[in-house]
């Protein structure tokens, strides 16, 4: 009935392949990271750690930093990193909620602004959900932001189609009236899916 198994091997990250077979239909939703790529996470700069039960993962970054002002290059004020995720769930899945936690550091001069924005969509569909978190200088401290996203099953009709879920995170720094260098960095992204009450089921 269900073949949700996915084995993804990423040369650019340390993703450990999950077991290739799911013996029985899971009564929960799983998430696997298929690819990690973007201007903020080029090959070799990110690492993926998946939870044993495949309901959560952590991506860490070594060079996801946007900067403006001072000696910053003119295209350095915006960086992105896109996670392509495969969700596993029984047929008839209708909707769900995903949650993502972002943690990083900001050094913003007075007058500068930093923005963390999460863009979420299913491959093959145009609608994009955006969640934005804004930070204002002066600031020189760690930051944390949480996004909760819903997605509707209507994009899945007819039953049996399965799409990749995309989470594209971007960082922007606007120098504004500030002097000196301002930057916004992302240390980690934690994603999770939960079925406790976030998912309902529908017969195909």
């Amino acid at each position: 009935m269900l073949t949700t198994a996915a084995v993804a091997a990423l040369a650019l990250s340390a993703l450990t392949p999950i077991a290739a077979d799911v013996p029985t239909t899971p009564d929960y939703v799983t998430v696997d990271v298929v690819t990690v790529n973007g201007s903020g996470c080029p090959a070799g700069t990110s690492a993926v750690a998946a939870a044993d039960d495949r309901t959560a993962f952590t991506v860490t970054y070594s060079a996801f930093l946007a900067e403006a002002g001072g000696s910053s290059g003119p295209t350095e004020f915006r960086k992105n990193c896109q996670l392509v995720l495969q969700l596993g769930y029984p047929q008839g899945f209708t909707f769900g909620i995903s949650k993502a936690d972002y943690r990083g550091f900001a050094h913003l001069q007075a007058g500068a602004t930093g923005v963390e924005q999460g863009n979420y969509y299913f491959s093959g569909t145009s609608p994009t959900s955006r969640k934005t978190h804004t930070f204002h200088g002066p600031l020189s401290d760690d930051w944390q932001a949480t996004d909760t996203t819903e997605w509707a099953s209507i994009v899945y009709a007819p039953c049996g189609e399965k799409r990749l879920f995309n989470a594209n995170t971007e960082l922007r720094v606007l120098a504004g009236s500030s002097q000196g260098t301002s930057f916004l960095a992302l240390d980690s992204t934690d994603g999770s899916v939960s079925t406790r009450y976030h998912f309902s089921w529908k017969r195909c």
Binding site: T3, T4, A6, A8, L10, L12, V34, T35, V36, N37, G38, S39, C41, P42, A43, Q82, V84, Q86, S123, G124, G160, E161, K162, R163, L164, N166
Partner: peptide, 19 residues
Amino acid sequence: GTAAVAVSPDNKAFTVTYS
């Protein structure tokens, strides 16, 4: 080394990301 490709489980969609 700058592009990554993912194909959906139903084989009907793919996503290419760029760095």
